[in-house]
């Protein structure tokens, strides 16, 4: 693994770093909004992977001249991954919006957006249910 290999794949290294950072945020942060942010970083890493993949060395923007006289020597960058990622970006925005909307609703219902506090509330609810229904089932639940 020499220097040129490292430089030649710099977009992948950045992709890996960004992806892992995103995942780490999702795993490590207890704040629900921060988790969404982590998720966003994670997705952005993928956008980067795709977009950098479409780049062809020495290629120009894939726009045809208006007279449609195309020089066969011209190298174009592959536009397809870019187009794909446009869709993925839309998906990402939708996910973020929905996620944040859920966070708002959770804040309304639980009064907090810290995961450990929410879990504690839910654990209490579950224990209470088990107590009630466990007894009702003759302790066999």
């Amino acid at each position: 693994m020499d220097w040129s290999f490292f430089v030649g794949h710099v977009n992948y290294w950045l992709f890996v770093v960004l992806m892992m950072t995103g995942l780490y945020v999702v795993v490590a942060k207890g704040n629900l909004v921060k988790k969404i942010v982590g998720l966003n970083m994670f997705q952005t890493a993928v956008f980067m992977l795709y977009i950098s993949m479409g780049k062809v060395h020495g290629g120009t923007a894939p726009i045809f001249p208006t007279d449609m006289k195309i020089d066969p020597a011209t190298v174009y960058t592959n536009p397809l991954p870019h187009v794909l990622i446009l869709t993925a970006i839309v998906v990402g925005i939708a996910t973020t919006a929905l996620g944040l909307a859920l966070v708002v609703r959770i804040r309304e219902e639980y009064g907090t957006i810290e995961e450990d506090e929410i879990l504690e509330i839910e654990q209490d609810m579950a224990s209470e249910e088990n107590r009630i229904h466990g007894q009702a089932m003759g302790g066999r639940a």
Binding site: V27, E115, A126, N130
Partner: peptide, 20 residues
Amino acid sequence: GPEGRMARVWPTGAMVLWIA
């Protein structure tokens, strides 16, 4: 059981860790 390790509600982070 309902409150056992296997059936408890897990924090999101732990689930994500499993994926990784």
